[in-house]
């Protein structure tokens, strides 16, 4: 899957807690907790874009790891992409 082509709205919904699931990958759980708190504290469009880009880059960089792949599938399913 080309993660770059996933719509921005999916990442935005993820950091805004509009997509949540029983995730498996520890790194995602920790990073996403931090980003959702930051997004709540700084909700300017620029900051939200920064956090959404950070979570997208996380998935690009960890796409080799099965737990990351499975969590991405869950996110896309909840986001209506799959």
């Amino acid at each position: 899957m080309d993660i770059e082509k996933i719509p921005y709205q999916i990442w935005h919904n993820l950091i805004s807690n509009k997509i949540s699931d029983d995730f498996e990958f520890l790194a995602l759980k920790i990073l996403l907790t931090r980003l959702t708190i930051l997004a709540k504290q700084n909700s300017s469009p620029q900051e939200e874009r920064k956090y959404a880009d950070e979570i997208k880059n996380f998935f690009i960089k960890t796409q080799k790891i099965p737990a990351s792949q499975r969590d991405l599938q869950k996110i896309l399913k909840q986001g209506g992409i799959l």
Partner: peptide, 11 residues
Amino acid sequence: GSGYDEFATRP
């Protein structure tokens, strides 16, 4: 630590 560049992207 959680604010460092590349946090959590590498084990």
